[in-house]
């Protein structure tokens, strides 16, 4: 449509007319002023109209390939190219990987902010007490549950551990982790009704932990390491291999 923008020394007074001629042979220019479209903005232009066209224009000739010859000098035709030559047209509403990832992240944040826990139920296991079982299928990489509790610093954690150690009935619900070089702890000792704290340990569990920053605070989320079927218990590696812990909790070895 606007292909007529080929660079040729057009007279600024009549751009419109010249454009139309680019596909035909150049006609002798009628220099009658009344046929020329005036530009409103400059009064100077009006004076110029009275003059004959500069001689250079007469020597212009157009070659077949679109090049223009002005006074024997060949000027290359420079054409506007279409963007569609560079970018593919997407007919479907498929999203780029980046947008998919962004949407996933946003969804996850939303779930965490609202504290939604879905597709899981508590089951009592003989010998190890409560555990969490999948009540729907999870696909590898899916978010399963958050390990939610109080986010505290290591100093506070030490104090609380001491307090908890006095009572034999308290389980271990302290999750120590590092994020961006800083040590944190999530304390889920309190019976909060949240399911994340009840997930049992296994050295080859089907979940793995990720840290995620939400509102500038790190959160622990458990992600499916493999496809998980309905009825399977979800497990992850507590990661504690210290002698002391093994003494108290021999199940940590398995």
């Amino acid at each position: 449509m606007v292909r007529a923008t080929a660079v040729e020394p057009t007279t600024p007074l009549m751009p419109k007319r010249r454009q139309k001629m680019t596909c035909q042979e150049i006609l002798p220019s009628p220099s009658t002023p009344h046929r020329i479209e005036l530009r409103r903005d400059s009064s100077e232009d009006i004076k110029k109209i009275a003059k004959p066209l500069p001689p250079a224009v007469k020597g212009r000739r157009r070659l077949k390939n679109g090049d223009v010859i002005v006074n024997g000098q060949q000027i290359k035709a420079i054409e506007n190219h279409k963007l569609t030559e560079y970018f593919p047209v997407r007919r479907s509403v498929r999203k780029t990987t980046k947008t998919v990832l962004e949407e996933k992240q946003r969804n996850l944040e939303l779930i965490l902010k609202k504290g939604i826990e879905e597709g899981l139920e508590i089951r009592i296991f003989e010998g190890k007490g409560r555990g969490i079982v999948a009540s729907k299928d999870f696909v590898k990489g899916d978010f399963v549950i958050e390990y939610s509790g109080d986010l505290i610093d290591p100093i506070e954690a030490k104090l609380r551990e001491e307090q908890y150690s006095r009572d034999q009935n308290t389980g271990c619900y302290m999750y120590y982790f590092k994020h961006n070089g800083q040590q944190y702890c999530v304390d889920a000792t309190a019976e909060s009704g949240k399911l994340g704290r009840l997930v049992n340990h296994s050295r080859n569990g089907n979940l793995m932990t990720r840290t995620l920053m939400i509102d500038n605070k790190p959160r622990l989320v458990l992600i499916a390491k493999e496809n998980i079927k309905i009825g399977e218990e979800v497990l992850y590696d507590y990661g504690d291999r210290s002698k002391e812990s093994l003494q108290h909790h021999p199940w940590l070895a398995y």
């Binding site: 506007n80 190219h81 963007l83």
Partner: peptide
């Protein structure tokens, strides 16, 4: 804004 360049034929 994206603009395709003009290219010499």
């Amino acid at each position: 804004y994206y603009l395709a360049p003009k290219i010499e034929e």
